[in-house]
Design a protein around this nucleic acid. Structure first.
Length: 414
DNA sequence: TCTGGGGTCCTAGGACCC
DNA sequence: TCTGGGGTCCTAGGACCC
């Protein structure tokens, strides 16, 4: 087939977490609703109070409202009616409660979300096998060599995928098709919900350049603020700058990337498989804890996190060599410490012991709001690498040595 | 009554090795 | 002693994404 054009799709499930909740509670459709928050078991509470009643018959009045919410959570997803009040993802629950107190609030149903995530992805790969995972609700798909993937610029295939997902799950998604991932990702936002947007190279100036720079994947709040200082607000503003100026101002790598991006150039492939780099568990406490005053409680949580991450590793068949901790103080500043072992492990006790050494190297004067445990430098548990004899010293360079030396003085808690 | 949890990638300095 | 040059590993922090 001559002159085949590269066509990459980005597919985004519409208000995914909220839409999943609406499958279970369709009576809430059209109402402002937010998903997120802490460890509340609202579903269990409803099931108990309305035992015997199918979930779709539970009266709307029975659902908890944002105005009654107490806790430290953030919003994962807001339905479109809730978004009208200015409520959105990543917003603190308390702030959202002020904007839209009458919104219904439900916790994330992780099991159901994961189940439907697997379901819609398998529907996609049956149609178009080259798919890259981008989290539970997002994927890239390479349309280039899929039969029909070139028709109407990819619209025919996008429509087929949309319809297949809807028929199987009852959920809608938005799709952007473009010459590369960068543009496809931007395109999928153009027509939400349940839309399809086809973007061609020639649309760059008219459709991409007017967009705020912040819309681009990779430009976050910090980069946006720095751009703003130079009067740069849109992608077009970036494109108008010299490559050399961007590199001098924002660093060699990011400056060059910005220039490429602004001109719509991106040759990253759609990658179907990838190995995890790390696994972690963390938790924000319901109230700040103090290392001395709340020693027992902290110790229990700490051990539990280590057990969880060990479980995760074992369940997925991985071992790791770098054990780390993360903590967040009451002032929201974060500290991390890690330490590499000579051998790979997925053992909760060893993780606990090593993480305990890390904890001894971090200041513990301030109250803590979060504690996390991480295992990195992963290998598949059945790989030769994971089972070979250690090829590096147990006590590596620098600071780590002092931690190793302190094993002898390790107390019972940390 | 601000600000979750699970990730990836990048940068940067020091240790260490050849 | 007045000072190399890579290359890799380790660690800490931070930006960013979903």
């Amino acid at each position: 087939m001559p002159g085949r054009i590269r066509r990459v799709a980005h597919l985004d499930m519409d208000a995914f977490f909220a839409s999943v909740a609406l499958l279970r509670y369709p009576q809430l459709k059209g109402l402002p609703m937010v998903i997120g928050g802490g460890r509340r078991k609202v579903d269990e509470m409803l099931a108990r109070d309305y035992a015997g009643l199918p979930s779709h018959e539970i009266p709307v009045e029975a659902f908890p409202l944002l105005r009654d919410y107490v806790g430290r959570g953030v919003i994962t997803t807001a339905t479109y009616p809730a978004r009208q009040f200015g409520v959105g993802s990543a917003m603190g629950m308390m702030k959202a409660a002020k904007l839209c107190p009458q919104a219904i609030v439900l916790p994330v149903d992780f099991e159901e979300v994961r189940r439907i995530s697997r379901q819609f992805k398998s529907i996609i790969t049956e149609i178009a096998p080259v798919m890259q995972d981008r989290g539970v609700d997002e994927v890239y798909i390479d349309f280039t060599d899929v039969p029909g993937g070139q028709r109407e610029g990819g619209r025919v295939l996008a429509r087929l995928i949309q319809k297949s997902i809807f028929d199987a799950t009852g959920l809608t998604c938005s799709i952007g098709v473009a010459p590369n991932k960068l543009l496809a990702k931007l395109a999928s936002e153009f027509d939400k919900p349940n839309g399809i947007t086809i973007l061609h190279e020639s649309d760059l100036q008219t459709r991409i350049w007017p967009l705020p720079a912040r819309k681009v994947n990779g430009i976050g709040p910090k980069a946006d603020a720095r751009l703003e200082k130079h009067g740069i607000r849109t992608v077009g503003d970036i494109a108008a700058r010299e490559r050399d100026w961007l590199m001098a101002t924002f660093g060699r790598a990011s400056g060059a990337w910005m220039h490429e991006m602004a001109w719509g150039r991106d040759d990253r492939p759609v990658v179907t498989e990838s190995e995890p780099v790390s696994m972690s568990r963390e938790t924000t406490f319901e109230r700040d804890l103090h290392a001395v005053r709340d020693r027992a409680e902290l110790g229990e949580i700490f051990t539990h996190l280590c057990e969880k991450v060990a479980q995760d590793l074992q369940r997925k068949g991985y071992v790791g060599r770098t054990i780390g901790i993360k903590l967040r103080y009451d002032d929201f500043k974060t500290a991390t410490r890690d330490q590499s072992l000579a051998e790979f492990t997925a053992d909760a006790k060893l993780i606990r012991r090593t993480a305990g050494l890390c904890l001894k190297r971090v200041p513990l004067e301030r109250p803590l709001r979060l504690l996390g445990v991480r295992v990195g430098t992963l290998a598949r548990a059945d790989s030769p690498e994971a089972n070979s004899k250690p090829n590096r010293p147990a006590a590596p360079a620098g600071r780590a040595r002092t931690a190793i030396d302190s094993i002898a003085t390790t107390g019972s808690l940390f």
